[in-house]
Amino acid sequence: MSATARPRRLTPMDVRARKGDTPLVCLTAYTTPVARLVDGDCDVVLVGDSVGMVLHGLPSTLGVTMEMMILHGQAVDRGLSHALMVIDMPFGSYEESPEQAFRNAARLMAETGAGAVKLEGGVAMAETIRFLTARSIPVMGHVGLTPQAINALGGYKVQGRGADAARVLADAKAVAEAGAFSVVLEKVPAALADRVTGEIAIPTIGIGASAGCDGQILVVDDMLGLFTDFRPKFAKAYAELGQAAGAAIAAYAEDVRARRFPAPEHVFADSPGASS
């Protein structure tokens, strides 16, 4: 009796091998239904700490906990069969030491089924990335605008303009040399993103960067028009599902108040044969 083989998911090495090839398609997901929706079209699905803002109403990502990431990671894992699942390490879970980072990264991967973790920071985090990758923890880097550092950066500002370009380039190179399999470039000038992409050996994944990056990522609730608290310039909305949902809820409320819902076809008769 032959068992049905589970479909093979993409691995960090598959993503690494896409450098300079067909652009990588990446989106966030936080729930099983959304994971199922994006799986077929995405190469990478990120369980992002943006879940704190998008689903939990937090003002930033700083309040996201390990427990929140594990809960949502487990949900996303149930909905994927193809894409590589990467999970964000939340603020405070990796900055203290490489050893702290390993303990938390290992826990995230073991309890969620993620194929890799993502952490923010460049030169300052190179030692930690090297420590993790030497211990079989695949790491996706994240440089440029790093949302967990908004207090230090003075808000959600473009990074790498003018003389600051050298810092972002150094961060990206440090991440690549430390062993990361890819790196997110967030909110940096397009010319700088193109330069970084040309000068490092791992794929760059842009968000507010350049079409010349090796891949692109967006927050799924932004691109579906579900999260409307604010919309960054780079967050193209491919649909306005928030507006459609609002209209549907209003129509439902009107039907309930007018006693049009439930209609006869939505209720049950005394006799099973009298109504389906």
Score class of each variant (00 low, 15 high):
residue 223 M to N: 13
residue 262 P to Q: 12
residue 104 N to Y: 08
residue 221 D to Y: 11
residue 135 R to H: 11
residue 251 A to F: 06
residue 147 P to R: 03
residue 252 Y to L: 15
residue 151 N to A: 11
residue 166 A to Y: 09
residue 232 P to G: 08
residue 82 H to E: 06
residue 162 G to L: 11
residue 178 A to Q: 07
residue 229 D to L: 11
residue 112 T to Y: 01
residue 62 L to N: 14
residue 98 P to L: 08
residue 146 T to M: 15
residue 214 D to Y: 05
residue 27 L to G: 01
residue 145 L to H: 01
residue 115 G to H: 03
residue 107 R to D: 08
residue 244 A to Q: 13
residue 248 A to T: 12
residue 166 A to D: 15
residue 76 V to L: 00
residue 83 A to L: 03
residue 133 T to K: 10
residue 129 I to K: 07
residue 111 E to C: 12
residue 142 H to P: 13
residue 27 L to K: 02
residue 70 I to Y: 00
residue 274 A to D: 14
residue 201 A to L: 04
residue 234 F to C: 10
residue 25 V to P: 04
residue 68 M to Y: 04
residue 192 L to T: 02
residue 194 D to C: 07
residue 164 D to K: 14
residue 156 Y to T: 04
residue 96 E to Q: 12
residue 195 R to V: 04
residue 195 R to H: 11
residue 22 T to V: 15
residue 15 V to G: 06
residue 90 P to R: 01
residue 176 A to P: 07
residue 261 F to Y: 15
residue 177 E to R: 13
residue 120 E to Y: 03
residue 161 R to C: 12
residue 203 P to D: 06
residue 86 V to F: 00
residue 6 R to H: 11
residue 144 G to L: 04
residue 257 R to F: 14
residue 140 M to V: 06
residue 66 M to Q: 13
residue 136 S to V: 02
residue 236 K to V: 13
residue 165 A to H: 10
residue 134 A to S: 13
residue 132 L to Y: 08
residue 131 F to C: 04
residue 117 V to H: 06
residue 232 P to Y: 04
residue 232 P to S: 10
residue 213 C to K: 03
residue 173 K to P: 08
residue 20 G to S: 13
residue 261 F to R: 12
residue 85 M to V: 00
residue 253 A to D: 15
residue 48 G to K: 04
residue 107 R to Q: 13
residue 125 M to F: 05
residue 175 V to H: 06
residue 138 P to T: 00
residue 194 D to E: 15
residue 225 G to C: 09
residue 121 G to W: 00
residue 152 A to M: 14
residue 196 V to P: 02
residue 200 I to V: 13
residue 137 I to H: 09
residue 121 G to R: 04
residue 19 K to D: 08
residue 96 E to N: 09
residue 103 R to Q: 14
residue 106 A to H: 08
residue 268 F to C: 06
residue 149 A to D: 14
residue 196 V to F: 04
residue 69 M to D: 09
residue 134 A to C: 05
residue 117 V to Y: 02
residue 184 V to Q: 05
residue 24 L to S: 00
residue 124 A to C: 10
residue 154 G to P: 05
residue 209 A to T: 08
residue 8 R to F: 07
residue 272 P to E: 07
residue 215 G to L: 07
residue 42 C to E: 02
residue 126 A to V: 05
residue 143 V to Y: 02
residue 189 P to F: 02
residue 116 A to C: 10
residue 273 G to N: 13
residue 271 S to N: 13
residue 71 L to S: 13
residue 44 V to C: 07
residue 228 T to N: 14
residue 184 V to T: 10
residue 217 I to V: 15
residue 154 G to Q: 06
residue 148 Q to D: 13
residue 229 D to H: 13
residue 164 D to T: 03
